[in-house]
Design a protein around this nucleic acid. Structure first.
Lengths: 190, 190
DNA sequence: AACGTAGTACTACAGACGGAGTGGTGTCAA
DNA sequence: TTGACACCACTCCGTCTGTAGTACTACGTT
């Protein structure tokens, strides 16, 4: 098991791209090597087996989907009114949709987690933490809406992103924009 | 291309189970033959190639997820008040969650459709029809809530099912029940 | 400055698996 | 007799995992 952290991270990021493009079964050592443009056999040195590969990707994927620290800080300061909150949600949906492969990879991991207990444990922990963090931020902002409202908004926006990424012809960009607006409004006026 | 419709249907239903269990890359002629307990080579006679197999499954999966005609008729008659509507939504979520493999298979198909234009076209058509039908039913029921409210409810319940099926430890059954209640209430009181 | 050692990058390969596709045989009914 | 179909056997091919082993590099020791 090799140690070089940059290389490991590069391999995991490559694995995310492979996951999104080829699906869970397509995530193989060879494919990761090729995507990361390293000699064949390298991934095999960094991950004990495919299970380990999935688990490590599951541990990292969420960090890549979340906004960076600066954005979070900026967001936390600025959320005082509904307009700003709505803007932030649009930003969220756009950012996640823009990191196309990241979100698709997460979906692949979710499906794969029905077959891999270790992966399921990692994902459950990460996502639980994210939901709790969102509830916390919202509570701190002082805006109306209890934790149920936050969770419902989380659910709605997630599937909206799924629709946008997997079947983009179901809703137009215009409709998606309006749906985000409506969802946020509903969440705050409950 | 063989014609026997019962056999074809049995093969497609077997394919749904394989999809849910093994993922999209695991959906092969061999696997379908084995799942349907027919001699190897049979699926290969019924589907021109893997693309065709995916497309035909995509055409059928939605029929299996939707309630049968009788239930729809019963539902359409009975939806006069919020209580009954809420009951129906619980039924919906439970029925879809119960046909576990069907829903997981649909998710696999969605992800696969990013790679297969024909499949994407079939799924887009089916799902568009379903959403429109839901909007129509709701409008006919006379209950409050416009089409946006129906779509938002659709989005929310979909991801709730995803959470329940892929990472069952995120929300307890109790929480899921309450979230369905809250989502329906919010949808009708907008 | 020469040498040794550890850690890592890279290569090569064995062994195995599984899939697509094809051709052929038997059977039954019109 | 002819045609549609179920069933079966077999081949070719690509790719995967896991491992063994070599090459390179950096660094510490003498």
């Amino acid at each position: 098991m090799r140690k070089n952290p940059e290389r490991r991270q590069a391999l995991i990021d490559a694995a995310i791209e492979v996951l999104a493009r080829e699906g869970a079964r397509g995530l193989t050592f060879r494919a990761v090597d090729a995507e990361a443009a390293v000699p064949p056999g390298t991934a095999s040195n960094y991950f004990a087996n495919r299970d380990d590969l999935f688990t490590q990707v599951g541990g990292r994927i969420y960090e890549r989907l979340l906004p960076d620290e600066a954005t979070i800080a900026r967001g936390r300061e600025g959320v005082q009114d509904e307009t700003r909150y709505t803007e932030l949600m649009h930003e969220l949906v756009d950012r996640v949709s823009a990191f196309n492969s990241g979100y698709l990879a997460l979906l692949e991991l979710r499906l794969e987690s029905t077959r891999r207990p270790e992966l399921r444990a990692v994902l459950t922990k990460r996502i639980r933490e994210d939901i709790d963090a969102n509830i916390g931020y919202h509570a701190a902002s002082g805006l109306p809406g209890d934790s149920t409202a936050v969770v419902l908004l989380y659910l709605t926006l997630n599937w909206l992103i799924v629709e946008r990424l997997t079947l983009p012809d179901i809703f137009t960009e215009q409709e998606i924009h309006e749906l985000v607006d409506a969802a946020v409004r509903r969440s705050l006026n409950a």
